[in-house]
Design a protein around this nucleic acid. Structure first.
Lengths: 232, 232
DNA sequence: CGAATTACCGTATGTCATACTGAAACTACT
DNA sequence: AGTAGTTTCAGTATGACATACGGTAATTCG
C-alpha cells in the first residue's frame, strides 16, 4: 500500500488495539471488499444492505456500525478502486509517463466494471489525485511543457479516460465479447445500405471489430502526443 | 388543473385522432417534460413516481399508462436531451463541422445538468446517432481522412465530450460558480506548499479559475485539430 | 465479580416501484 | 337515446429498501 489515505490518526491511544466492550465481528475493509465482490458478481444495482449483511453473516443494522449510510459505503467502494493507482516511475519521456498513468487509471476502473459508473457521480475525489497531479505536472514541466498546458493536458486526458471507460463498460465489459460483436453485427445489418452507405460499407469494419484498447490508445495519443513544444 | 399545451399531432397510420374509450388526461410528452423539469429543480434522485404524479395532478399508477416502468421514463428523459441535436451544416472545413457537433452535444447535455449522469448508464443509444455518424463520416472522408481514422476520431471525441460533461457537472453546474471557485480556493489553501509546490504555486492559477468551456475546447482541439492528412 | 463500555441485531417506520382491480369516461352501434 | 364496448384512471395491496431506535450480548476494567 504505497499511499496512505488516512490523515486522521487518532491522537489518543494509538497503539492500543484492545478496547473495552464487545469486539467487532468485521472490519471496515471486509465490509467494503465484500461489497465490491457482490457488485462484481451481481451488479451494483443488486447491492443492498440486507443482501450484503446476509453475505457477511450479520444482521442488516450491523453494517451501520461500519458505515454511516449506504452512500458512504458506495463512496468507499469507489475510493478502493483507485487505492493501488500509482504514478509510473519517471522515465526519459514524460509522454510515456503520463500515458502510462492513464492507462493504469483505466485498467483500475475496468477491473471492476460494475463500479465504473461511480466515476460519474462526482463524489469520487480520487484520493491522492493531488499527489499524482503534482508529480506529473513536475514531469511535464521538466519536459518543457508550460504549466497551463500541463494542467489542461492532465484534465483533458482525465476526461477522455473517464468518458472512454464510461462508454466502454456497458458495451464490452458488461457482456461477453461474442455478445458484443453480435450486437454490432445485428445493429449494422438492420441499417439500410442506401441510407447509411458508409456505416454499412467501408466503416463497418472499424465499428464493432476494433478493440477498445486500441481506440483508447488512439484517442489518448491524440491528446498527449501532440501537446508540448513540438506540437503542430 | 392546467390544460396541456403540447402539440399532439399523431404521426400514426390513421388520421383518426379520436378513439373509443376514456380520453387521456396527459400526453407522453407532458409526462417526460414535467419529469425533466422536476429533475432540473430537485435533482434526479428526488424524482419518484408518486412525486411526479402529484406534480401532474394524477394518481401514481396513471403514469404507468404512459411508461411501462420508471426506467423507461428515465430513458425517455435521456433521449429527449438529444432530440434537438443536429449535425452542423457542411462548411468548407470538416474540423469545424465535427467540433461544432460535439460543442452542441455538450451544450445539450449541460442544459440539464442533473440528467448528464444518464450518459453513463449506457442505455442511451442516442437516437439518430447513426445519422450523425454517417453524415460526419462523409464529411471527414471528403476532407481526406481515412475511414478508420474518421471512426476513431468520432469515437474519441465522443468519449472526451462525455467524460468532460461527467467531470464538469458536479463541479460547476450543480452549484453556483462562486461556490465552485471557493471550493477550489479552499482545497488549494489546505495543501502544504512544501508537499505541493506546483499545485499551490504556478499551477494554482490554472486549476480553479479557468473556464470549463476553455478546457473543453483545448481538449477537443487536441483530438480533432491534429488528426487528418496533416497530422504529425 | 460487578460495572462500564461497546457492538450486535430484531423490530418499526416511511418510502419506493409496481401488480391488481374495479370505477369512470368516452365512442359506436342500434 | 340508450346500451355495449373500449380505454383510462386511480385506490389499495405487496414486498423490498434504507434506516432510527432500543434492548441484549460480549468484552474489559476496577
Amino acid at each position: 500500500m504505497p499511499t496512505n489515505a488516512d490523515a486522521g490518526a487518532e491522537p489518543g491511544p494509538p497503539s492500543t488495539a484492545r478496547r473495552a466492550g464487545r469486539p467487532r465481528r468485521l472490519t471496515i475493509d471486509t465490509v467494503v471488499n465484500e461489497a465490491i465482490r457482490h457488485a462484481d458478481e451481481q451488479g451494483l444495482t443488486e447491492l443492498t444492505m440486507p443482501r450484503l449483511a446476509r453475505r457477511l453473516g450479520v444482521g442488516t443494522m450491523t453494517l451501520y456500525g461500519y458505515v454511516a449510510s449506504k452512500q458512504e459505503l458506495v463512496d468507499q467502494m469507489a475510493s478502493a478502486l483507485f487505492a493501488d493507482l500509482t504514478v509510473p516511475d519517471s522515465g526519459d519521456d514524460w509522454r510515456h509517463q503520463v500515458s502510462e498513468y492513464f492507462r493504469r487509471f483505466r485498467k483500475a476502473a475496468l477491473a471492476h466494471p460494475s463500479l465504473a459508473g461511480l466515476l460519474a457521480n462526482g463524489r469520487v475525489t480520487i484520493p491522492a489525485v493531488f499527489d499524482h497531479l503534482e508529480t506529473l505536472l513536475g514531469a511535464m514541466r521538466a519536459g518543457g511543457l508550460g504549466t497551463e498546458d500541463a494542467v489542461r493536458l492532465f484534465y483533458s486526458s482525465l476526461c477522455f479516460t473517464i468518458g472512454e471507460v464510461q462508454w466502454e463498460v456497458p458495451r464490452t465489459h458488461a457482456q461477453s465479447p461474442a455478445a458484443y460483436a453480435q450486437q454490432w453485427h445485428d445493429l449494422l445489418a438492420a441499417l439500410d445500405p442506401r441510407a447509411y452507405p458508409l456505416l454499412t460499407g467501408p466503416a463497418a469494419a472499424h465499428l464493432g471489430t476494433v478493440s477498445s484498447d486500441e481506440q483508447f490508445e488512439w484517442g489518448l495519443a491524440r491528446i498527449i502526443a501532440t501537446a508540448g513544444p513540438h506540437r503542430v
